[in-house]
């Protein structure tokens, strides 16, 4: 069953200058379906719009156009109570765990407030028990050690666990995790990812994992799916093993060939993908057609004006006009490609 369906979603930010208004089209015709209970990865470099999309999914931003269906119902046409339910069901884990916790409040009250706000009938003792339960669920044991601490007294990994506990305490169906490990120490990253995977498997939580780090995608998502974003659109979407091992879109190919592999023999012998330019262009000056046109070796004159369409196969969607002409690419070289 599909928990979330996004269709033709567009987002335009308007920034007002002194006497002019500038429109920035940050998300273009996003189509995305998320199955109940899956982990899906949303991958892209800075400025590709992945965080904006995450904020739209969690309801922090309203899209300019397009529909979002949650459990089959359009969220725009819901009444207040249903909206509240949707809000509660879709939660957000932010990137910077220090900024996401109120610096002057103890962990206990940071956790108490949202539980109380959503369950007004609960007594204090019941909430206390819940707080302890969720802190221990995310591996902060014994919970009593952490309740009276301020955010700055915890390590980055512990704070990230507190955030996850806070999100769990609202009993969500879908969690959007925005770069949950990018701000914490390398040695602690894997354990946070493990926790997310565990929550997915044990509680059946659906997770949208937003990241710039392709290396972790396969670890987190496993057999699931991933979407690659570039300058506001999803350029490639499909099963992780297809997208990573046989990328089709020239941007995905370039991205995957750039990820370093912790093995000097493979790393130094893998095929290179050349680009016309290394810099990501400014999204404000992006052409209406394919955003990758100026950097793509296979681009022709028609690409910049191409009407964005999804092509390739049903399971593996690629947004590229010349999809048939792109030579295949495989990280492990030719021998494993057959």
């Amino acid at each position: 069953m599909k928990i979330l369906e996004i269709e033709k979603l567009n987002m335009v930010f308007t920034t007002r200058g002194l006497n002019s208004a500038e429109r920035v089209h940050v998300l273009r015709d996003i189509d995305l379906e998320i199955e109940q209970g899956e982990i899906m990865a949303l991958v892209g470099e800075s400025g590709c719009g992945k965080t904006t999309l995450g904020k739209i999914i969690t309801g922090l931003l309203d899209p300019t156009s397009g529909t979002i269906k949650f459990n089959g119902n359009d969220i725009a046409s819901r009444n207040k109570k249903q909206k509240r339910e949707y809000r509660k069901s879709v939660q957000f884990i932010q990137q910077d765990s220090y900024a996401a916790l109120n610096p002057v409040k103890k962990i206990y009250s940071s956790l108490y407030t949202p539980i109380k706000a959503n369950n007004r009938k609960l007594k204090r003792a019941q909430i206390d028990a819940l707080i302890v339960k969720y802190l221990e669920m995310v591996g902060l044991t014994p919970a009593s050690l952490f309740l009276e601490k301020f955010p700055h007294q915890l390590s980055g990994g512990q704070r990230q666990r507190v955030l996850i506990a806070r999100v769990l305490s609202l009993e969500p169906k879908l969690i959007v995790a925005d770069e949950p490990i990018s701000m914490i120490d390398v040695s602690l990253r894997l354990s946070i990812l493990q926790l997310l995977i565990e929550l997915n498997q044990k509680l059946g939580l659906t997770i949208v994992y937003i990241t710039h780090d392709l290396s972790t995608v396969k670890y987190v998502v496993g057999e699931g799916r991933m979407a690659v974003m570039y300058l506001g659109e999803i350029v490639e979407y499909g099963k992780v093993k297809d997208v990573i091992l046989q990328p089709v879109h020239p941007y995905t190919q370039a991205l995957i060939s750039s990820v370093s592999i912790p093995d000097p023999v493979i790393e130094r012998n893998k095929p290179m993908i050349r680009l016309k330019s290394m810099e990501i262009p400014d999204i404000r000056h992006r052409c209406e057609g394919c955003g990758f046109t100026d950097r793509c070796l296979y681009a022709d004159d028609a690409c910049a004006a191409w009407k964005l369409e999804n092509t390739y196969t049903e399971e593996h969607i690629v947004r590229c006009k010349n999809v048939q002409a792109i030579p295949p690419y495989a990280v492990l070289g030719e021998e494993k490609h057959e």
Binding site: L190, Q194, K218, Y219, I261
Partner: peptide, 13 residues
């Protein structure tokens, strides 16, 4: 170290 060519079972913290 996670990698695009390793599956989860090959990675252990």
């Amino acid at each position: 170290t996670p990698s695009i060519i390793r599956s989860a079972s090959e990675i252990s913290p």
